[in-house]
Design a protein around this nucleic acid. Structure first.
Lengths: 195, 195
DNA sequence: TTCCTTTACGTACAGGATGTATGTAAAACT
DNA sequence: AGTTTTACATACATCCTGTACGTAAAGGAA
């Protein structure tokens, strides 16, 4: 069998990534066999191993891609929220909830990722993407050194669980509004703790 | 080969449970083979399947056992905190952090469990054990119906991530103090939101 | 006590999934 | 034009779960 051009190869890799993203989101990491991914993408497992090295490697690529999408949504929302730091924080958090739940990537990003790639590594990846802005916003608001780390971690955890809770109430605008209000309460408290 | 008395059988089951608890905490669910558990417990996989049915069944039993330990610690601390509801809440949360991190069960309870037994089921199990008291305390403090669920979920998530963060700073009393202060800030805000 | 059923395992086997080694043909560079 | 590297497919080794079956003793019934 032939070999594809560099362009076709990139397309193959992308196809595998998209297929894997959908299957992981639908069935979870453990229940998806690489054979399923390969078949759905129209290739064999050889192609998957060539491009991603291992099942975990493929999963890590999926996670990174999803995180980039979420992070860009957060940044865009924050940029659009004007110059006020706390307004940017609030807008970014809302955007995070929207992006994470809408992508139907909740399971992959928030449930499977910590278990598969390890909590510490996941935490670090997360910290480099979406959580940076949370941390920086808290720091800009004057949260002292000792509380910055734990408050960031706890608010991040609160938002993750809010997203998971929201994912269990799809299309429920009242639930979404309640989550936003709850989030505002906690964020205000964290910001107020600095002064 | 012989058969053991009912008493011996219970001891075997318990030995398997304890061994599995240690191995799951150390290496994570996916990296532990039932052969490892059986060998470390001095039996064969047959015994494991006899008592727990499947790998997930064994894991579920481990999770249930750990949750009971944590829950009893939370209840004991709350009972000892006097009659004030908010004081009970605070004491219970501190006890939760201590119990979860001390048991070296952070990984099993907070990282692996949602992925292995499914987030929804884990959430329900969690809600029936430790989170009940959080929800009841918030309700007793007058948190309205619409906010009760999301606030409970978010505070639970905040505490879980606080525990995970603390697990990364073992023996660091300054970190523990900072986590306690951060927790107090969020709890106070939630309680204050009711009035 | 004797018989029968059930329990508590051990053993052997089947199936599926990951990962690796190898083959191959075309693309890409020299 | 020749050589190397890329992009896969194929075949194989290995491991792990789960199940089927065997077995011997415990526990109750007669």
């Amino acid at each position: 069998m032939p070999r594809a051009s560099a362009e076709d190869a990139a397309r193959t890799a992308r196809s595998i990534l998209d297929t894997a993203t959908a299957l992981f989101a639908e069935s979870g990491f453990a229940a998806v066999a690489l054979e399923d991914v390969a078949a759905a993408a129209g290739v064999t497992r050889g192609a998957v191993y060539h491009h991603y090295g291992s099942k975990r490697g493929l999963f890590a690529a999926v996670v990174a891609h999803l995180q980039e999408r979420v992070a860009s949504a957060v940044v865009a929302a924050a940029d659009q929220a004007g110059a006020d730091a706390s307004a940017q924080l609030r807008a970014g958090c809302i955007a995070f909830l929207d992006a994470v739940t809408d992508a139907s990537a909740v399971r992959t990003l928030l449930v499977d990722a910590p278990a598969v790639i390890g909590w510490a590594e996941w935490r670090q990846l997360d910290a480099e993407h979406s959580v940076v802005h949370l941390r920086e916003a808290l720091a800009a608001a004057g949260v002292t050194g000792a509380l910055l780390e734990p408050l960031t971690a706890m608010l991040s955890g609160a938002m993750n669980d809010a997203a998971l809770w929201l994912a269990g109430h799809p299309g429920d605008s009242a639930a979404r509004a309640a989550a936003h209000r709850s989030l505002a309460i906690l964020l205000d408290a964290a910001l107020a703790s600095a002064s």
